[in-house]
Each structure stands twice: as C-alpha cells, then as structure tokens.
C-alpha cells in the first residue's frame, strides 16, 4: 500500500506542474508594447530585450517585432510564433496605445492586462498621437526616453505625468473617467502633447497643454515646475516652487483655493498678478471644456455628494453644467536675487 502511495505521489510530481517551466534562455522579455488597430485587426509592436554577454559583462540588445491578430491574445500567439520564445509581459516598462483603439474601446486592453496573471500593471500607459508604434519604440532606448520624458515634464513644465495602467483602470472603474498622457514624435524624438480625456473607456477629447497644466494643478499632481505664460516670451517664465490646491464645495458652488510659492528671476511688480491671471485662465478653459462636454473630470459632483448629499439628491439633474466656481489665490513670492544685509543703527 505504501509503495502505491509513493508511486502516485511520484507520478503526480511528474505529470503536474512543469507547465509554467521556462528556462531563462527561452524567455522573450518584452520591455515595451505598442497596441494599434489597423484594418480591423490588432497590431502589436513589441520591443524585446535580448540579454547577452559581452567581454564578461552582462548587456542586452533590443529588437522590435510586430504581429497581428483579431484579438490581443491572437496577436501575442503570432508574436510567439515569430520569436519562438515565451512572451514575458511581467517586465513591461511602457505600453503605448493608438487613438483608434482608444476611440473604440479601451476595455479590451484593460481586461487583457488585468486578467494576465504575470503582468504587473504598474507600467506607464500612453496614447500615441500622429505616430505609429514602430516609430515610437524601435529605438532601443525609446521606452526609457518616454518614461523619463513624462517624469521630467511633470517636474519641469507640469503638462503631463506618468500614469500606470492599474491607476487608470482604478479611476475608470470608480470615476468612469480619467486622463491619459499623450506622446508624439518629431524627427524620431518623442515629445509629450499634454493629456487626453478618457470617458467610459473611450477617448473623448484632448486637452491643450495649458488645460493639461490646469488639470494637474487641480488634482495636486504637480508641486514645483516652470510656468511659461502662453502670450509671453521666455524671460517672463515663472518658477512655481510649491503648490497646493484645496477644493471645497458649498451647494452648487465650487471653491478652489490655490496656495503657491513662486519665484522670478526678474523683479517684476506684476508677477503675482500675471501668475494668478494665467492660472485662472487655464482653469477657466479646462472647466469650460469639461462642462461643455459634460465630463466631470475633476470629480466636483463627487465632492458635492460627499459634502451635501441632500442638495445633490435634489438637484443632480444637470447639476454639473450649472456649477459655478470661485478661485482664490494665496501666492507668496520669493526673490532669490534679493540680498539681505544688516542695518546700521
């Protein structure tokens, strides 16, 4: 009896497991993935990492492969047939989707990644505008460049930010809308083009750079950056050292309080006024766009719902379009060129 049990355990060991066994040599590491829709088919552009040893040092090469299919899964299977390696999506560092898919339905992409057991979903996701995936990803360092670009832009200009797939999915699930960074390419150099609005898993509209900046202001996703007023030259750029936005509501009125510390290289007496005027203009533009398109991008209705449920319940019809808002600024100016000296008594 004991021998039979031992034999059964051994057999189990031999016939179970092992399906996920993959040697490192057989693994196709995908670092960036581009998803496009061409001729009603999904086209995947995958940037593969090929590790190699060079003079005892571990290095790698990147190469792009493309494949098509009616679904993402089919396209991946075709990709596997091309590269003859098991596709590893666990180390994705960037996913770029094109506008066609975004306009149609993002759900299939989200579902695929959320259901894929090995994918980590903490990679940045971007929308490609007027550029194809191959052009964007074929350079081996492109994915690093794009990721770097998003982060640097958030710090430097404040018109975009890095959004992970899981955050995007969460926002779409909870709030039904979100924004997604937009990238393009000029002379094979990736550039950022602000943000795009996704509502109900579909691309709705694009935000201008100023509106994108306003969105990041209102959602507290930027802290310090350089603000270049749209109708001015380079020398009048304003350095925002610190920024914090508090949004509250009173019935159908939204109160936006912006606390900023700004700095200017010149002694400009109108600095504060210019700054506040510029920011207000951007916020006005953003809110107008969202109200015109009936997209509560900044979740004002959620705020009203939490603060004053009764009012919300009685007035929820067309409430968003009827919202008014007031912006209050508390701006402090720092003058880095100003020297303080002792006072001679």
């Amino acid at each position: 009896m004991k021998k039979i049990i031992v034999l059964c355990i051994l057999l189990l060991g031999l016939i179970t497991g092992c399906v996920s066994y993959t040697e490192l040599n057989e693994l196709g590491i995908v670092s960036a993935l581009g998803i496009e829709e061409i001729d009603q088919q999904i086209q995947l552009t995958a940037n593969f990492i090929l590790p190699q040893k060079d003079d005892g040092e571990s290095t790698y090469q990147s190469t792009c492969f493309q494949s098509r299919g009616t679904t993402i899964e089919e396209a991946l299977n075709n990709l596997y047939l091309q590269v003859s390696k098991k596709i590893d999506l666990a180390h994705l560092e960037l996913v770029a989707i094109d506008t066609t898919i975004a306009q149609e339905d993002l759900n299939k992409i989200l579902q695929f990644f959320l259901q894929e057991p090995t994918a980590r979903n903490n990679f940045p996701i971007v929308l490609m505008k007027e550029v194809n995936a191959k052009e964007l990803l074929e350079n081996e360092n492109q994915k690093d460049t794009i990721a770097h670009l998003l982060t640097m832009n958030q710090i430097a200009q404040g018109t975009t930010f890095s959004l992970s797939l899981e955050n995007m999915a969460r926002q779409l699930l909870e709030e039904k809308n979100t924004v997604i960074p937009v990238v393009s390419s000029k002379d094979h150099i990736p550039t950022t083009e602000g943000l795009a609005i996704i509502q109900d898993n579909k691309l709705k509209d694009y935000l201008t750079l100023e509106e994108s900046n306003a969105y990041l202001y209102l959602s507290n996703q930027i802290n310090s950056f350089t603000l270049i007023p749209s109708n001015s030259n380079q020398t009048s750029e304003i350095i925002v050292k610190e920024n914090h936005t508090i949004i509250s509501s009173h019935q159908n009125k939204i109160q936006i309080e912006i606390q900023s510390t700004i700095e200017s290289k010149e002694n400009n007496v109108d600095l504060k006024e210019n700054y506040e005027k510029e920011v207000k203009k951007r916020i006005d533009s953003l809110i107008k766009k969202t109200q015109d398109n009936k997209m509560d991008l900044l979740h004002f209705l959620t705020l009203i719902y939490r603060n004053d449920y009764n009012f919300y319940e009685h007035n929820k019809t067309n409430l968003f379009e009827q919202l008014t808002y007031e912006i209050t600024f508390h701006t402090t100016i720092q003058y880095p060129n100003l020297k303080t000296e002792g006072v001679l008594i």
Partner: peptide, 24 residues
C-alpha cells in the same frame, strides 16, 4: 524564480541572470 516565477525578479536582475545563463 528563474524557471517559474521570473516576474519576481527586477528587469536588471533578469537581464543579468539571462546573460549569464545564455551559453549554458
């Protein structure tokens, strides 16, 4: 982690291990 659960490894470590095992 190198045969079943490669997702546990960071990309740099994975590249390093893969490169070392390339000719084995």
């Amino acid at each position: 982690v190198t045969t079943h659960n490669q997702e546990v490894l960071s990309l740099d470590l994975l590249i390093n291990f893969s490169a070392q095992r390339a000719m084995v």
